[in-house]
Structure formats: structure tokens, C-alpha cells
Amino acid sequence: MSGIALSRLAQERKAWRKDHPFGFVAVPTKNPDGTMNLMNWECAIPGKKGTPWEGGLFKLRMLFKDDYPSSPPKCKFEPPLFHPNVYPSGTVCLSILEEDKDWRPAITIKQILLGIQELLNEPNIQDPAQAEAYTIYCQNRVEYEKRVRAQAKKFAPS
């Protein structure tokens, strides 16, 4: 494992614990031996107030490669969400998460999670990743928002 990646992720964890947006979660997972795995984080993004996503808490896994922060983490909703920019596998399609697009090593975990929260309610229809959600979003916004509200209710924190 890269010392650069681990040191950056340790800084990220410290900064997150000191200050993070209300309702968001970002925690490194534990290895079988109980030690912390900084390369694999369990996160959760709350649906934004005043949107059909409100009330939901959407679980996301963030996986970092050894060359982080040169390369972005892979962000994957578990379980996958109904959304035009979420692949059926759950992987998020967002330009700041793509090395050859808008990724920059200075982007923080907090910025990534806030960017994904923004994307939930403002899909990028130029870059669809899920045919069904994309089609319904474009053709029947009322039905799309109904499905999103049902999903938010399903993923409401207990």
C-alpha cells in the first residue's frame, strides 16, 4: 500500500471527524483483525431537504486505489439507486470521479460526498449510466419523482 495514499486518507479521516456536513457519514471499514482499512470507507449521503430525495439516507462505498490521490476513489451505492447517473452496479457516474475528466488530487472526501448529493437531485442527462431511470427522467418527470420519493422512504434511517 502506498504511504502517500494512507497518509492522505488519515488526514481526510481526521478532517472529517473534526468537521463534516450534518447527516453525512464517512467511516473507514475494519479489517478482520480489527485494524482500520483506510482504503475502503462506508459512507452515507442524506437526501437534500426540499427535494424528492429528502428523508432518505443512501449508503455508498468509497474504494481507494494505491495511487490515490492521483486517481479518484470508486464510489458505489449499496444497494444501487434508481438514478440516471448511477450504473446498474451502483457505481456513480460523475465527472469529478473520473481521472480523465474533472478529478483533481486536491478534491476531498467531503467535496465528493457533497457533489454526489447535488447530483442526486440534478442528474447530468449528457452522461446517462442507467437506461430506465434516464428514460423516465426525460419522458415523465412526475413518475420519476414518485419513484425517487418511494426510494427515499425505503432508505429512511430507522
Rank of each mutant, 00 (worst) to 15 (best):
D127C: 00
K154Q: 11
F22E: 01
A106N: 01
Q126K: 12
W103L: 01
E145W: 07
E118Q: 09
A150W: 09
P123S: 02
N124F: 08
W16S: 05
G55I: 08
P21K: 06
Q151R: 02
K153V: 03
E122D: 13
L63Y: 09
G34Q: 13
Y134T: 05
D19K: 06
P79M: 13
R147L: 14
Y68T: 06
R17L: 01
R13H: 04
D67P: 10
V86D: 02
Q139K: 08
K14R: 14
K59A: 09
T108Q: 15
H83F: 06
Q117H: 13
F22K: 01
H20N: 00
Y134M: 09
V86R: 02
L120Q: 08
F82C: 04
P73D: 00
P69A: 04
P72N: 13
K101C: 14
N140V: 01
L114D: 09
E145M: 11
H20E: 01
Q130H: 09
D66W: 07
W103D: 01
C138P: 00
S95Y: 06
V25N: 04
L119C: 06
D67R: 08
F77T: 03
T135C: 15
P123R: 02
I96Q: 06
I109Q: 05
I109K: 01
W41H: 10
S89T: 12
M62A: 09
T135L: 12
K59W: 15
W16F: 11
K146E: 14
R149V: 09
L81I: 13
S7D: 06
A133L: 07
I96K: 04
P72T: 05
C93R: 02
P79E: 14
P73I: 08
S95W: 07
K18G: 07
K101Y: 15
V25R: 13
A106R: 00
E143Q: 11
I109E: 02
A15C: 13
V25P: 04
N85M: 10
C75H: 04
S95E: 05
N85T: 00
T108V: 15
I112M: 13
I112H: 12
S7A: 01
A133Y: 06
A152S: 08
V92Y: 04
G115R: 00
K101T: 13
Q111G: 15
K30R: 14
K154C: 00
D33T: 04
E122C: 13
A129G: 03
P80N: 13
D67Q: 10
C75G: 12
R104S: 10
C75N: 08
Q151T: 04
P52M: 10
P105W: 03
T51A: 04
K14N: 07
R61K: 13
P80L: 08
F82Q: 02
F77Y: 03
C138L: 07
S158L: 11
T51M: 02
W53C: 00
S2K: 05
P105G: 10
K146A: 14
L63E: 15
R104P: 00
V86F: 13
E78A: 11
V27R: 14
P128V: 00
N85D: 01
A129C: 04
G55C: 12
D127R: 02
P72E: 09
A44L: 11
C93L: 04
N85R: 04
C93F: 00
C138D: 09
R8I: 00
Q126V: 14
E12H: 05
W41G: 01
E12P: 02
K110M: 06
F77A: 00
Q117I: 07
R17K: 07
F58T: 06
G3H: 08
G50Y: 14
G47V: 00
P128T: 08
A10D: 00
E99K: 11
N31K: 11
A10R: 03
D66G: 10
Y68C: 04
Q130G: 00
V27Q: 01
E42A: 14
E143F: 07
M39S: 05
L6R: 05
T135K: 06
L38V: 01
S2V: 15
P28N: 06
N31V: 06
I107G: 12
K48I: 07
D33E: 10
L94W: 05
K30N: 06
G50E: 14
G55N: 09
E78N: 14
A129H: 04
D33L: 04
P46R: 07
E42N: 05
A5E: 11
W16E: 03
G90I: 02
R61C: 11
G47C: 13
I4N: 06
G34E: 09
F58R: 04
V92N: 00
N140W: 01
A131N: 14
N124M: 04
Q130V: 04
A131S: 12
L9C: 09
Y137E: 02
L57P: 05
A5T: 08
Q126R: 14
F155C: 14
E99A: 12
P128L: 01
P32Y: 13
E122G: 08
L9D: 15
L120R: 03
D67S: 13
P21H: 05
S95A: 04
P88T: 15
I107M: 12
L97K: 01
A10E: 01
G56D: 01
P128E: 03
L81E: 00
D33R: 01
R149S: 10
S2W: 01
L120C: 05
V25Y: 08
A10G: 09
S89W: 09
S7V: 11
M36L: 14
P46C: 10
P46F: 05
P52H: 14
P28D: 06
K154S: 14
K59G: 08
E54N: 04
P105E: 00
D102N: 10
D19L: 04
D19W: 06
P157R: 08
T135M: 09
D100S: 15
C93P: 00
R104G: 04
S71L: 07
G47K: 02
V92M: 01
L113K: 03
L114E: 11
A10N: 14
V148L: 07
E122H: 10
D102L: 04
Y144V: 01
N140M: 05
A150F: 10
K49A: 03
W41S: 03
K65H: 12
A131E: 09
A106H: 01
P21M: 06
F24L: 06
A129D: 05
C138R: 13
V86N: 00
P32V: 10
K65W: 02
N124V: 03
K18D: 04
S70V: 09
S71K: 11
I116N: 00
E99D: 14
G34P: 00
V86L: 04
E54K: 14
A152E: 03
E54Y: 07
L94S: 08
P46Y: 07
K49D: 09
I107F: 10
Q130R: 11
